[in-house]
Simulated scan of single mutants.
Amino acid sequence: MPLMMLKALWAKVWPYIALFTAALAAFFGIRQAGKAAGRQETRQEINEANAKAREKAREVDDKYDQMADDSVRDSARQWVRKP
């Protein structure tokens, strides 16, 4: 008799346990997907910033490559502290 009652109780509770487990799995799945998307977005922003920095450095190198040595020296003097 107690076994029948236990089976009946299990039959009534089982769907709720399955629903709770599925909801928990969905929550963690969505959370992980959001974290991965955030990491990808951050990686993309860093790559764009690095590309802009490389382009700016290339522009500066090109500018100084086109200048004469005296002009480069004069330009560099503004960055050197005078004693």
Rank of each mutant, 00 (worst) to 15 (best):
R58C: 01
K56L: 05
L3G: 11
D70P: 00
V80G: 00
R81L: 06
M5L: 12
F27K: 14
A51I: 02
A76W: 07
A49F: 03
W79M: 04
Y64M: 11
Q44V: 05
R39S: 07
E59H: 02
F20T: 06
E48H: 04
N47F: 01
Q32D: 10
G38S: 11
E41G: 06
R39L: 09
G29W: 14
D62V: 11
P2I: 12
A37P: 00
L9C: 13
M1G: 14
R81H: 06
A22K: 15
A33D: 11
P2C: 05
Y64A: 02
I46Y: 01
T42G: 00
D70T: 13
M67V: 10
K52Q: 04
W14T: 08
P83C: 01
W10G: 07
L6C: 09
T21I: 15
A22N: 12
T42V: 10
K52I: 03
R77C: 00
E45L: 13
K82G: 03
E48R: 09
K82C: 02
I17H: 05
M1V: 11
P83R: 06
L19M: 14
P15N: 00
K63M: 13
F27G: 11
A11R: 14
K35V: 11
K82Y: 02
A11K: 15
Y64C: 04
K56A: 11
W14R: 15
F28T: 15
